[in-house]
């Protein structure tokens, strides 16, 4: 179960490039165990360290800029999180301390993985992201109001579907929610089994 997300104030870290893929967020070589932890060191490893497999920070990469050391928000480019479906990308972001990514668009599997792990994927347009990056000062995300506020004059609203919002706000576990509907599922399967018996491989056909 993820930590609830209500409001978040943080200096956002700009990583505004199109098509930041999950290989960049966590390279496959950094997925060293079958668990969900121990991934923060591998976050953006290909960009963050000077050599593959090494741990010497590349001072040119924004994650190593001390100015953004406490940042909990990433400002991204279009199609953020494309590529492999690996949830490790989101586990690595969460373990490192990120709670939100703001981008003009997200790859669908990545956005779903974010919500399941208490990270907000917020969509606003690229121009607004440029304004926020230029301001280089803390912003406040209010999930209930669906707003991102830079200052009194500059704030933006972002869309999010109701279920994702509720899951993030309350840190809900989707499996728990669905298991409460076990009776509905059983009824549906019974009717479906009569219609499509070939789907149910364990049963005698």
């Amino acid at each position: 179960m993820a930590e609830p997300f209500t409001t978040l104030t943080s200096l956002p870290m700009p990583l505004i490039r199109g098509n930041i893929d999950t290989d960049q967020i966590i390279p496959s070589r950094e997925m060293k165990s079958t668990g969900k932890t121990g991934l923060a060191d591998g976050l953006f490893a290909g960009l963050r360290y000077t050599a593959i497999g090494g741990r010497d920070p590349d001072s040119g990469f924004v994650l190593n800029d001390p100015h953004y050391a406490d940042s909990q928000i990433i400002l991204g480019g279009a199609n953020f999180g494309c590529g492999s479906s690996r949830e490790h990308a989101v586990w690595a972001l969460a373990e490192y301390g990120f709670r939100a990514v703001i981008a003009p668009s997200f790859a669908p599997i990545f956005a779903g993985n974010c919500v399941r792990n208490g990270i907000l994927p917020a969509v606003i347009d690229a121009d607004a992201i440029t304004v926020i990056a230029k301001a280089n000062s803390p912003i406040t995300i209010d999930l209930r109001a669906q707003t991102i506020r830079l200052d009194d004059d500059q704030n933006w609203s972002f869309p999010i579907d109701e279920e994702a919002k509720a899951m993030l706000l309350e840190g809900l576990d989707a499996i728990d929610l669905s298991l409460k509907m076990a009776a509905d599922i059983a009824t549906w399967q019974e009717a479906d089994r009569a219609k499509r018996p070939w789907i149910y491989l364990g049963a005698k056909q």
Binding site: S85, V90, I109, N113, R116, N117, A174, S178
Partner: peptide, 9 residues
């Protein structure tokens, strides 16, 4: 394609 959490679900 889905993530690990959805696979569990």
């Amino acid at each position: 394609g889905i993530g690990s959490s959805e696979a569990e679900h």
